[in-house]
Amino acid sequence: MIEAVGLSKHYGATKAVDDITFTVQPGMVTGFLGPNGAGKSTTMRMIVGLDRPSAGQVTVNGKRYAEHRAPLREVGVLLDAKAVHTGRSAVNHLRAVAATHGIGRSRVDEVIALTGLQSVAKKRVGGFSLGMGQRLGLAAALLGDPSTLVLDEPVNGLDPEGVVWVRNLARHLASEGRTILLSSHLMSEMAQTADHIIVLGRGRIIANAPVADIVAMSTGTAVTVRTPDAAKLTSLATRDGVTVTATEPTLLVVNGLTAPQIGELAAKEGIVLHELTPTVGSLEDAYMQLTADDVEYRSNNGGF
């Protein structure tokens, strides 16, 4: 269990993390979402004591990370930045990290096998692909068989097989009663892996709820309507709380009305419908709406 209370990190006037309070529960996968610069990585670094909080504190299983007698056995961490000497082989890196906790060679070989690194274990890390580097980072995180895992972008750079493997691993570890906190930019991946989502934006918590609740926050389920009489339906349907967007001359996306309401309206007015499809909100939709005001680095979609 991870508990953050009033956690803040300021760099000069910039508030990277601004007074956030949350709890990550054991036995489930908690997803950490947010735009770039939202404070996810900084929060994760503060959990394992690499960054010192400007205010507040964060504890793992009731103690600050540095106060644990065997920190690697409490928390396994994979950071987004590289944390391996490029001149050293994978096996020597893991042996060196394991040695601090008196973890033996057999466990090193176990995590190498677990992460599929056998063929490159004796090669120097400098020549590793991004995916191999991620697998080595995961191997290091698992060394102490920790009860809590903090994984920053664990599927970054992994091939599809690796992505599925990380998903299954996270779910499996959570099913064993461990606490899993992972961040990802892949929304579809997060929807499949996480049970609970914490959304950060500009250093603050925007949402903290089960995945289903977050998805339900996606305001106004949209309905796709295809009709040759698009202009007439648009003028009839548009009123307070209802928006109609034409994506093609004969294709409308209606927000604020249900599919039956649109069907009945069309029947009453004698409008022919070729398609009437309610689209369920996705985690991605919910996320985009939640963070719309909090994106620090926005790409300019030409003309807007």
Binding site: A96, S106, R107
Partner: peptide, 25 residues
């Protein structure tokens, strides 16, 4: 299999371990 070999004691950080780690490094 994720569980460690149950025979191993749950050892913590020790200065001896740190010395061995630095030797390996």
């Amino acid at each position: 299999t994720l569980a460690p070999t149950p025979t191993a004691p749950r050892s913590g950080v020790s200065f001896g371990g740190i010395l061995f780690s630095e030797w390996i490094k």
